[in-house]
Design a binder for these strands. Structure first.
Lengths: 200, 200
DNA sequence: CAGCAGGTAAACAGATCGGTTTACCTATCT
DNA sequence: AGATAGGTAAACCGATCTGTTTACCTGCTG
């Protein structure tokens, strides 16, 4: 398995597959070595510890969104479309960074730092595109769009429903639209007398 | 510790504390028994297996949102305010249901079903309130608000930033507002068939 | 050809896990 | 008083985990 590549590459590919699909704690180094078709000794020659292998696994997942010259708004919404396909994939098992933080527990672990870096990098990707669209407060909106995507990942993991990406996309459209249109109303909105609460 | 209560209660309280703050897989049954001030034999008398204890732990966390006769909109936004306090708490460690699904991995495990039930129950709570407000498509909006809350939990776990709850709340306000106001025509922005973009 | 870097296979060490068993103890109820 | 239910404490079992070690093998390269 994973022939035609260096041992280090095969080990990393095996770790990626097993760590993601089965969980970091559920997979032992023996299983990674076996999947890579490599002896345990060789694995420890390339990665001094399982923690180092975990860090390498997370760093290798650190892929930038492919740059595109499509309209910024389309790029953002296209990301949510891609998300739906990711959620529908049978091997989807949540966000690898969130999972790593959950599984490892220790916030001092290197994995947590890598996760934070990844999330911030992606947030800046949103923000740059939103600035090109010319929305109000691109920074705050970037955070909100990321919350939607993050929520879709977590919720789809629990529910197994890929269409949640479409819900997130629809919400993202509303938020972007709102940040484009002229301010409509001040925050403290007048109190509307509510109906008698007798009937739920 | 946990005196003045039955053994079963003490065991459950200990499991809740340890499972949530340190993770399900990181905590052994010996640790739970010790924390509960109970022998391992007694623990297994009350819960036949660790899996059963996990299920009991998740079920016990199954708390309804306290019913209130405050205006529905206030209740929803108040929930996001409470969320910020939860995220700011030093012992916050993410959503216990998502964490359990991630840590256990197996979708056939009882814990997954409990998690799904909890999420759906909460979604229905949103939906009932939204219907009282009289928004368009309360069902879809309930899902979206839940995505925001879920995203805030996951993002705050990796970033450690409680103000993400405020970002989620602001987004929720916009979405609710949008679902209340009469349909707006998109300003000269005709629908364009979306084109899938490439890799993450 | 000699040497060596880097590989395999497998045993090993020490720890921890879920779960069981043994032996003993103590409060309560008829 | 004596049986019983339910508790403690601790040893034990077999499996599994990370990481190390031993012994051997193989393909380059000077």
């Amino acid at each position: 398995m994973y022939t035609d590549s260096t041992p280090a590459e095969r080990i990393l590919a095996a770790a990626d597959k097993l760590f993601y699909t089965q969980g970091i704690r559920a997979v032992g180094v023996d299983a990674v070595a076996a999947e890579a078709g490599v002896s345990k000794r060789t694995l420890y020659n390339h990665y001094p510890s399982k923690d180092a292998l975990i860090a390498a696994y997370l760093t290798a997942r650190f892929k930038l969104v492919a740059p595109s010259d499509a309209p910024a708004r389309e790029q953002i919404l296209g990301y949510f479309d891609r998300l739906e396909r990711i959620l529908a994939d049978g091997s989807f098992r949540g966000c690898p960074y969130v999972n790593a933080v959950v599984e490892i527990g220790d916030p001092k672990h290197q994995a947590s730092g890598i996760a934070v870096q990844f999330k911030e990098q992606r947030r800046l990707w949103y923000r740059a595109l939103l600035e090109r669209i010319g929305v109000r407060d691109a920074d705050a909106l970037a955070t909100q769009l990321q919350l939607l995507a993050e929520g879709a990942l977590a919720a789809a993991l629990v529910r197994g429903d890929p269409t949640l990406a479409r819900s997130a996309r629809a919400a993202a459209e509303v938020l972007i639209e709102n940040a484009l249109s002229p301010r409509r109303r001040t925050r403290g909105r007048p109190y509307k007398p509510r109906r008698p609460s007798s009937t739920p």
